[in-house]
């Protein structure tokens, strides 16, 4: 099973490099934790206001935190010629890109999601809702990483292109954030985990899983010429 072996190798390498020296896997989690930490200062610590805004604020923090690691997703490989070699591999390029995205998601989103229950406590989310809410954030974060990869691929050859990538990606994030935040609001109002907005979010993530790797692979190919 050489295809599976190659994809797993890419995925594991992405995790290894992310956690290695200078990999920056914890940057997104730190950004997420930091932005949640300032929320009570900015919005006021009153439990009823904060509790109302809290679930939506977590989605905002997740969206912005997921932008942090995007810039380097393809840029490092483009600069050191790794991308050339990956194009020469017999493994389909979109599968390689998918493995890279999943690898980065595991390396950067996992610590972020691990901090999310504490973050939820900080913004006064009802304790009973915290774990289901974090589950929804986990599903949504995969969608954000997949969609973000398209922007990262487009901006891969731009020096200091992080802000450009953010500008490209944020409008594409809108549907996921809308459904994610509505699902969170439904949870906070005592609704089901599998509410209608959450099902829409799941559909979005599945669609991104199918299309984003192909689009990102095509975009990244443009820079190799």
């Amino acid at each position: 099973m050489s295809l599976l072996r190659a994809c797993l190798a890419i995925l594991k390498r992405e995790v290894r490099l992310g956690w290695g020296a200078g990999g920056g896997a914890l940057l997104s989690a730190s950004f997420f934790a930091g932005s949640v930490m300032v929320a009570p200062f900015a919005l006021g610590p009153a439990p009823d206001t904060l509790g109302k805004i809290g679930p939506g604020y977590l989605w905002l923090a997740l969206t912005l935190a997921s932008l942090v690691s995007l810039e380097r997703l393809f840029q490092a490989d483009l600069e050191d010629g790794t991308l050339d070699q990956m194009l020469l591999s017999p493994v389909p390029h979109s599968l390689q890109v998918l493995s890279k995205i999943i690898g980065q998601w595991l390396a950067t989103a996992a610590p972020l999601l691990a901090t999310s229950p504490i973050a939820a406590l900080l913004v006064r989310v009802e304790p009973a809702v915290i774990l289901p809410l974090c589950g929804q954030l986990a599903v949504g974060s995969l969608g954000l990483f997949l969609i973000g990869a398209i922007g990262a691929a487009l901006g891969a050859s731009v020096r200091r292109g992080g802000l450009l990538v953010a500008l490209v990606v944020l409008p594409l994030y809108a549907p996921s954030v809308i459904f994610g935040a509505s699902a969170a609001a439904a949870l906070a109002a005592g609704g089901d985990f599998f509410s209608q907005p959450f099902l829409f979010l799941c559909a979005l993530v599945l669609a991104a899983l199918a299309f984003a790797p192909v689009a990102a692979a095509a975009a990244v190919r443009l820079h190799v010429d």
Binding site: A6, R16, D80, T82
Partner: peptide, 21 residues
Amino acid sequence: DPIKAGEKLIDQLRFWADLCG
């Protein structure tokens, strides 16, 4: 040279071995 600064040389070659089968 597609060499990553933060990874052992032997791991990098194992990665290339996996990628090209």
